[in-house]
Each structure stands twice: as C-alpha cells, then as structure tokens.
C-alpha cells in the first residue's frame, strides 16, 4: 500500500503544503491585522506585510478590556472543567466496566444518552436548574407530599455555575470505557489475588495505566471549556465573572454601537486568547496522540 517514488513524494508534499497554507493563512492574516494601526487595517485590500504597531495594540487591548482578570476567569473555568471531567469520567467508567450490579445497563444508557444532549440542546432547563439548584429537589419533595421549605440556591455568576454543566456529558466516560475494556481480566484477578480492593485497584492500577487517556481527555476538555461562549454568556451577568471569549465579542463592534470595528485590537485580543489552549495542546501533544490512537501495552 505504501509506495515510495520521487513523484509520489513530491505530490504528497505538495498536498501537505497546500493543506498547511489553507489552515495557516487565516491565522497569518489575523496576526498581520494585529500589527497595524486602525487606518491601515481598514484599507482595502489590507497589507499582508507586518506593520509596526504590534506592542502598542497588544498592550492597549490587554489593559482596556481587562484581559488579565478575564483570562484568569477562563483559566479557573477551564481547569475546573478539565479536572472535574477527568475525575468524573474515570469514576463513572470504572463503575460501568468493572462492577456488576442491578440497573448497571440503565445507568450505562443514561450516561450514553447525554452524548446526544450537548449543552446547547439542554441550555434552557440547565439554566433553570442553575438559577435555582433546589428546584428539582423541591419538586421531588412535593411529589412525596412532604411539607418542607427549601431555600433557593443560586449558581448564577459563580464559578460552580460556569463549571458544573460543562462537566455533565458522557464523552470522557466513553473514552475511559473503551480503554478499560482493553484491560485484561487476568490483571484485575492478579490484583484481587494480591489482596487489592476496588479502590486500590482504581488508584494504583487503573489511573497509572490510563495516563495517556487522561492526558488526551484533559487536553480536549481544556480547549472545549476555554472556548465556551454561549453558556458563560447566559450564566454571568456581572462583568467581573466574564470569561476571555466573552470579552472578545465586546471588542469587535467598538465600545459603542455605530462606531467602526477596531479590527487591529480585536485581532490582537483573539491571538492572545488563543495562546493558553495552544500551549496546553503543545505540552500534552505527546500523550494526547498516544491516548487517542490506542492503548500502549
């Protein structure tokens, strides 16, 4: 199947270069735009040679839109989602794969169904719950005819509210499940014979063995959470809780409606917001690829 000939080599390289240009060119344009001042960025066609306002643009938009605080918010949310997801996914997959209990398949399918219900689909009920976490409980209590007043618990404008709904999906569970299924029964049995209980087995065997999977999932979840836009927009009303991606949108039309978009600053901000997920991907790339391709024995 794999042939090597000079012609084929040249062709594949040409294809790769075309692909690279198609992907990288828009990013290049963004970078160029972020180095010009407002008049030259609005020229048609825009120059494709870097201008000399790079430092000025970045410094200005950083302080003007308070990106320090916003990036910190984003970081807290992304790390929270990543950590929560990695833990939740590992534990739920552990339960589904290694334990035999009644209703196991019910739980399996309940988790599976959430795959078909991404946050965007269930955003209204999710918002309702976030606005008052006690509401479903109150409803249950009412169903059983108990008189009990539960105080409202509000998650709006909180990190918890930003993080929790993003954790509640099955993607990670399935990644782990597939990996756990490749672990030979005899390994579980050897651990049993050595006297290890389920918790020990989970911590001392499963977690170290799923290092690569964890890295892959963590990378995916970090980028996913960092790039969230709709949910933070809904659940935060206070400017102090805004995330970096939300802040981007406030730059584009200019501070007031009717003003021309400040493209150079918007592009500078865009590139800045891209950096943290990019760093995560670069650092995790090694494990990430191994974790997604296969389990290494």
């Amino acid at each position: 199947m794999i042939e090597r000939s000079p012609l084929l080599d040249a062709l594949t390289h040409a294809l790769m270069i075309v692909g690279l240009i198609v992907t990288a060119f828009p990013i290049y344009v963004v970078f160029i735009a972020s180095t010009h001042d407002l008049p030259s960025v609005n020229q048609v066609p825009m120059s494709l040679i870097p201008g000399n306002h790079l430092v000025e643009n970045y410094a200005k938009v950083w302080s003007k839109s308070d990106f320090g605080a916003k990036m910190l918010n984003s970081l807290i949310v992304a790390v929270g989602v990543t950590v929560g997801k990695v833990i939740l996914a590992a534990i739920s997959a552990f339960s589904i794969v290694f334990f035999r209990y009644r209703l196991r398949m019910v739980f399996f399918w309940m988790i599976f169904i959430t795959l078909m219900l991404p946050l965007e689909v269930r955003i209204v009920p999710t918002y309702a719950v976030a606005a008052d976490v006690a509401e479903p409980l109150r409803w249950l209590v009412w169903l059983f005819g108990i008189e009990l007043a539960l105080p409202p618990v509000n998650l709006l404008n909180s990190y918890t509210g930003l993080i929790l709904p993003l954790i509640a999906t099955a993607t990670g569970t399935f990644l782990y499940r597939q990996f756990f299924l490749t672990i030979p029964d005899s390994l579980v049995e050897a651990a049993k014979m050595d006297g290890a209980g389920p918790v020990r087995f989970f911590i001392e065997h499963l977690l170290p063995l799923s290092r690569n999977n964890m890295a892959a999932l963590a990378t995916i979840m970090f980028v996913y959470a960092w790039n969230q836009y709709l949910w933070p927009l809904l659940i935060t009303t206070e400017q102090s809780m805004a995330t970096a991606t939300m802040q981007l949108q406030k730059i584009v039309p200019g501070p007031l409606f009717g003003q021309p978009p400040i493209w150079n600053e918007a592009m500078a901000a865009t590139l800045m917001v891209m950096v943290p997920p990019l760093l995560v991907v670069i650092f995790m790339q090694h494990y990430f690829v191994r974790g997604l391709i296969a389990s290494d024995k």
């Binding site: 005899s186 049995e189 050897a190 014979m193 006297g195 065997h205 063995l209 024995k297």
Partner: peptide, 17 residues
Amino acid sequence: PRERGCAMVFQNYALYP
C-alpha cells in the same frame, strides 16, 4: 480471594505493566 490464602500464577503472567 484475599481471605483464602492462595496465590496464583496466571498463564499470561498478568504482571502489572
């Protein structure tokens, strides 16, 4: 198993990788 005082050697060794 751990309460029975048996140790086992498996066909595929089942070492902890």
